[in-house]
């Protein structure tokens, strides 16, 4: 049985100026499944996620999200996309709770104190809920950003390095949250620098190498790709 993909890209390419960042990417994401895009710095993973989220426009090719063109997503579709970027997208002078409340209101999801508390509790920040984000460490910011991305009840979740800056506790917490999202039927795409293992979750891994999407483990076939892991 082949379900309709949540996200589908057709011959997607992206260049910044003259520099190609993504080349001929064909990708499908399905509801209730998680994919990991593996690649080194500058491989194009983040750019790919941003294009899938409709934040950046492809130079060539087409991207459909929930059956719509990613450049003209309806309100309904945008409401169902959660994204974690490498920037936190949090207001430093608001408290953790105020940030959560703010985004919940924007997305029209329950933003009662109880609902916000539940999210803060899940990411282990309830004790510092009323402290300003400015005083947070990078890891705490990452936890709060995860809550921000997931509280919108997404059907498409785009996570750029979800485990960055997290302590082992945080990694376990984040994997649990991601698994819960997949189980409720959300399509998840995340990026990582190397192979990932999440307990109880089957991951489809592919590599992004020099702007191309290849099955994981086959990226070295081209020979030269491997030699530039830290570009």
């Amino acid at each position: 049985m082949m379900a309709t993909p949540v996200v589908e890209t057709h011959a997607l390419s992206k260049s910044f100026g003259e520099t190609p960042v993504l080349r001929d990417v064909n990708l499908k994401l399905f509801a209730g499944r998680a994919a990991v895009l593996i690649g080194g710095n500058g491989a194009g993973k983040s750019t790919l996620l941003r294009i899938l989220g409709g934040l950046s426009r492809p130079s060539a090719g087409r991207v459909t999200v929930f059956g719509e063109d990613s450049l003209s997503l309806s309100h309904q579709s945008r409401r169902r996309i959660g994204m974690l970027s490498h920037q936190s997208w949090l207001y430093p002078n608001l408290t953790a709770r105020e940030n959560i409340e703010f985004y919940a209101t924007l997305y029209g999801v329950p933003h009662s104190q109880a609902a916000c508390d539940r999210w803060l509790d899940q990411v282990g920040l309830l004790a510092v809920a009323d402290e300003r984000v400015r005083s947070f460490s990078r890891g705490m910011e990452q936890r709060l950003s995860l809550a921000r991305a997931m509280l919108v009840e997404p059907m498409l979740l785009l996570l750029d390095e979800p485990f960055a800056a997290l302590d082992p506790d945080g990694v376990a917490m984040a994997s649990g949250l991601i698994r819960a999202q997949v189980e409720r039927g959300c399509a998840v795409a995340m990026t990582a620098h190397g192979a990932l293992q999440l307990d109880g979750l089957e991951l489809e891994a592919c590599s992004v190498a020099r702007g191309r999407l290849v099955p994981y483990g086959e990226e070295s076939r081209g020979g030269r790709v491997r030699s530039m892991p830290g570009r």
Partner: peptide, 18 residues
């Protein structure tokens, strides 16, 4: 010219894969 340069860079990158 920008377009051609972009296409050229893309082609060069693809050639590098082989």
């Amino acid at each position: 010219m920008k377009e051609l340069r972009r296409a050229l860079a893309l082609a060069e990158a693809s050639a590098g894969d082989l």
